[in-house]
Design a protein around this nucleic acid. Structure first.
Lengths: 107, 107
DNA sequence: TTGTTTTATCGTAATATTGCAATATAAAAA
DNA sequence: TTTTTATATTGCAATATTACGATAAAACAA
């Protein structure tokens, strides 16, 4: 095969897996980090920041957008990207929950 | 192509991407969740918990082990798997840092 | 209008992932 | 020893991902 057996798992499990898949590439990690260093959300120069061709970056941005990790709004000719705090908080809470449960364990 | 341009990014960016890649499949999310529900670390029945064949689960466990998300120690015939709190904390801190930086932003 | 700039999409080649049957390995039980 | 039980590895087919050249689309400038 090659396709994940998505149907065999819960909606929540698939959601979390999709969030992590969106973050499972160094270019997308770099994009998130870059968005954090920029003061405002007004961007448009991500292509110059990364050692990848423009179509490749556009594709990575699309995946981050589909996963709701970033938001993009049209700003004239350019597009303004910024991180989605809700999704970041969602992931943060997920691991906070895991960390909390782990404290009551033998590990 | 198809291979990631790993060399173009920092060691840290690749490390984080690999951690997330290990968590980017619902079966591996399910394994992590199952390990959280078990009282002790003494496991050995993960195969019966998931709707996947034994070789498939063994492969998923291997990926989680390679990413240091779980630890496995031989326990006679069975193998005892448990979560690695250090790695969980590492991811938790990563998002805590992002969340903190986001608070000083326009988003 | 035409040209410029910025981002998106298409098409495709190279590579990676997923899943499992078959088989192997390792440790304990009989 | 042989058998049983639990986990790992191999090999392969189906599918997904990654990267980018070529091209398109959208908004503004001249």
């Amino acid at each position: 095969m090659g396709a994940s057996k998505t149907d065999s798992f819960s909606v929540e499990q698939n959601e979390m897996a999709n969030l992590f898949k969106a973050l499972s590439h160094p270019a997308r990690i770099a994009i998130v980090e870059y968005l954090l260093t920029v003061d405002s959300c007004i961007c448009g120069d991500i292509v110059n920041e990364l050692p990848l061709a423009q179509p490749t970056i556009s594709q990575h941005l699309k995946e981050l957008k589909n996963a709701n990790i970033i938001k993009g709004t049209v700003e004239g000719t350019a597009i303004c990207y910024c991180l989605n705090p809700d999704t970041i908080a969602k992931i943060e809470n997920h691991f906070g929950m895991i960390g909390h449960k782990l404290k009551n364990k033998c590990c």
